[in-house]
Design a protein around this nucleic acid. Sequence first.
DNA 1: CATTAGAATGTAATCGTTTACATAGCAGGA
DNA 2: TCCTGCTATGTAAACGATTACATTCTAATG
Lengths: 344, 344
Amino acid sequence: MSVNIHEIARRCNVSIATVSRVLNNKGPVKPSTREKVLQVAREMNYRPNSSARSLSTRKTDTIGVILPELVDEFFMSLIHELDEVAHKYGKYLLISSSHSSRNDMETIYEFMAGGRVDGIIIMAPKINKQIQNILKNNIRPVVLLNCDVPHNYAVRIKIDNYHGARSVTKHLIEHGYKRIAMVKGPSGNQDAESRWNGFMQEMEANGLAVNEKLILEGDFTLRSGYYAFLRLLNMDSTEKPEAIFFANDMMALGAYHAAHVLKIKFPEDIAVVGFDDIFTGRIVHPGLTTVHMPISEMGRKSMEYLIKLIEGEEELIGHEEVLSTGLVIRESCGCTQNWLPGDI
Amino acid sequence: MSVNIHEIARRCNVSIATVSRVLNNKGPVKPSTREKVLQVAREMNYRPNSSARSLSTRKTDTIGVILPELVDEFFMSLIHELDEVAHKYGKYLLISSSHSSRNDMETIYEFMAGGRVDGIIIMAPKINKQIQNILKNNIRPVVLLNCDVPHNYAVRIKIDNYHGARSVTKHLIEHGYKRIAMVKGPSGNQDAESRWNGFMQEMEANGLAVNEKLILEGDFTLRSGYYAFLRLLNMDSTEKPEAIFFANDMMALGAYHAAHVLKIKFPEDIAVVGFDDIFTGRIVHPGLTTVHMPISEMGRKSMEYLIKLIEGEEELIGHEEVLSTGLVIRESCGCTQNWLPGDI
DNA sequence: CATTAGAATGTAATCGTTTACATAGCAGGA
DNA sequence: TCCTGCTATGTAAACGATTACATTCTAATG
């Protein structure tokens, strides 16, 4: 089928060892031989077979990436950044999303034990003991994204959901709102939990009571935000919230939609904030005040750490890093700010 | 390092051939032997080394995906669908984006000649002769997405930009607009060209003159749409367009932004339509009338075709398929339609 | 009981590299 | 001239699977 090292060797009247040495710049080779080999290889469009090479060297130059889903902006940005860095280091990306928890295990296992990758970046919101066990016999280096389970065998990178939630809650409080509602994310979700904690603690720190009726649970979808918003609006006027913190932007956008239908104005009638800083939140009016997640940084760092681990920097194992989040103030919270297209 | 087939064979007191036969369900094996091997393999968490297997079978169970960029919704949806189908067939996805044209070649070549994948799905807006040459010596099957270059060695799947553009233009004309502007995409871009052609032909078919001043060129970014919109607004009132067709939604959103600042109302003051049907276009008010691209279908079909090609269905080679686009009517064109969150 | 077909298993080559080790070639010093 | 110690090259053994072919076992048949 394809031309191989033997063919190159034959045409150059040298042995395959010499060809290999030339191609890998290893060991001494006479300049003239070197030239000849290089030239023939170029002429024949020779490219070493990666399977054979991997089999021999136990390196694949491939990084496995396992994500919970392949759906929104967040993951696209992440993949984009991973690709950039990987490319810079000459690595390829083997990507898989969770089709089910059972399947994640299968994939991780195939990637690791099957020798398909040199290392893995995993983002699994509900990482379980199974995964932990696999990692314990860590065949290959692993970087864990936003996983709260402590794990001494992997590098862990997290986004600071907790402080993000606190800061945006604090911002609402500073606006003078007292009755602040929160639409939580799905229970069991790590990000959702942290944001919820941040909200509660900030409220508490400011001596504000949290009316249980003002705490609703959504599932991060636009639709669930839409309905949660309608429910909150239906409350008695003495209890009705002055502001709502949606655990993510998508749910807040559901509220925007309902508000438009009901002719309710943000922030005059009610203030609204989100979390994530997705693109649409910059386009809608009023601009959605939210918390920015440093996704690119997360992508870049995780890939760089993984590559270092692969290259043998053992001292990194167990390292944990928390990336800070930033408050993005637009208008939905009650602030007036003129932002130009240059900002977006 | 990891347990291999020899170890399994040793523990079972059989030869590696027998183990291989059991694991691949090939050839006759005594049930008792079979059980034993399976059990030991399970106990030892044995997983065949994929490099060795690939080297021997010349199959990688990996599909290469090369995209122009890894940035927006479009590509995320595409990847999502590719992943779904690939997973269904037990294939893995090796993904790379264009870092440069030169690099694309390198990647395609490494994927193909390097034996990293069994086939490739390529989306390269400006596919060049180089790529064509590589494909001509087609080492592995290829599916080309939205590439206009005829190519007898690959399956090609396109999206019908032309008719999409015609239908949305027609819709504007039916609204009674006569002075219709178009903000084109970047020249050289295949999609942009087709949309432009569709627009022109539909205008012509309806006997409408196209004022050259009303034709602007953007680059598909929000910012370029913003400025194009401002320029169109600055025209003499006898020339100023009654409606604008933006070659993609992102540019139309730039117009939304400008309109908000300038207190211009869609569609009362001017009608606006886009192309792509991105998520944000459903959220803004008024909802953006646009053309829907069947991205999922494109992803699904391309992967299914590729897998068939890989499995040897040679008669598919050269097959071309054009996927139709659909007019999505919301309110920015002048229609009044109530859409519920259930629609989104 | 001998014969034989078919099932069960084993042997060894193969896939295309890398690389440890062996060997050949060659220049310079004694 | 003969060593010595380089540099340059070759040989062959991995790497871990698959698989064609050879061999042995089993059981049924005449």
